Structure formats: C-alpha cells, structure tokens
Amino acid sequence: MTAPRLLTPAEAAEALRISVKTLRVHVEQGELPRIILGAGRIKKHWAIDPNDLAAFIVRRKETGGAAPCRSTSRRKAPISTTTSGSKVIAFSELQARQTGAKPNG
C-alpha cells in the first residue's frame, strides 16, 4: 500500500482557490487536519492529505442554494417592546429650569 502524495500548503490552497493564509486559519481552527513533517522547532513544515482535503470540501458544501446576503437583503423594521420611564420636556423648559436655579458658590 502506498501513501497518498501529500499536498503542500500552497497546493492545497490552490486546490481550494483560497490563500495560504486562509488555509492556515482553517488548519488552526481544527477544520482541516495537517501532517507535521520534520522536526523543526521554530518553523514547522506541514502538508495536507488529499483525503482530508476532500473531506473538508464535503463538510463545507452547502445544499439548498445560497443564503441571502445579509448586507443587501431587505431589512425588516425593528420590533421594540421596551418602554422608557423618561419624560419628554421642551428644550425651553429645561433652559428655564437651569437659569432659575441658584448658582453654586
């Protein structure tokens, strides 16, 4: 039995049509397993198993069409059930209260 040819991060990213930086994020979040190669302490060399890449694609596949775009879809009016205990007063009334108050000092 021969081992599958492992993909470099650049090859795996190209297969997914994403950047290597984005691929690293998926690896760091545990969504895509990696195989550590060598014994480097500072900069570890790693590769991706093609079978793991295929499983990652299957897990990420959406069915039933795309979700509506949240930034361009119609927004509904907010529903608010909160009540406020504040009182609405006229600005002139507030100004009259402040000028009628005794000065501090």
Rank of each mutant, 00 (worst) to 15 (best):
P50H: 12
A39D: 14
F56T: 01
L94G: 15
L53C: 13
I35G: 02
Q98P: 08
S92H: 06
V58I: 11
P33Q: 11
L53N: 04
H26P: 00
I89N: 03
C69M: 09
L7C: 09
L7V: 08
M1P: 01
L16K: 07
I18K: 02
T8L: 03
K43W: 01
G64C: 02
V25G: 01
T81K: 15
A77F: 09
L94M: 02
I36G: 04
A55C: 01
I35F: 08
I35N: 10
P4C: 09
E14T: 15
A10S: 15
C69L: 08
F56C: 01
A101C: 02
E28Q: 13
I42Q: 08
P68C: 07
G64T: 10
I48K: 04
K102V: 08
P78Q: 07
S71V: 13
R5Y: 05
V25A: 07
L16P: 06
M1K: 09
T63N: 11
I18C: 07
L37N: 11
E31W: 03
S19K: 06
I79M: 08
K87A: 10
G65T: 14
C69W: 05
L6M: 14
S71I: 15
G100A: 15
I42A: 12
L23T: 00
P68Y: 06
L6C: 13
W46V: 00
T72F: 05
R24K: 13
A54M: 06
F56V: 00
L94Q: 09
A55W: 03
S80G: 14
P50T: 04
E62I: 12
L23D: 02
S71Y: 09
K44I: 03
P50N: 12
H45Y: 06
F91V: 07
R41C: 06
R17F: 07
A55M: 05
L16A: 09
A54I: 10
S86T: 15
T99H: 03
A47Q: 11
Q98C: 07
E11C: 07
N104W: 05
M1Q: 15
R74V: 15
P50V: 04
K102R: 11
A54G: 09
R24Q: 13
S71K: 13
H45C: 10
S73A: 15
I57Q: 05
R59L: 03
G38Y: 02
A39Y: 02
V58C: 01
A39R: 11
T81S: 10
R41W: 00
A66I: 09
L53G: 14
I57G: 04
S71D: 08
R5C: 12
R59F: 00
K102E: 08
K43R: 15
H45S: 11
R70I: 14
T83G: 03
G38S: 11
P33S: 02
G105W: 00
H26Q: 07
G40Y: 02
A3L: 15
L6A: 14
Q29T: 02
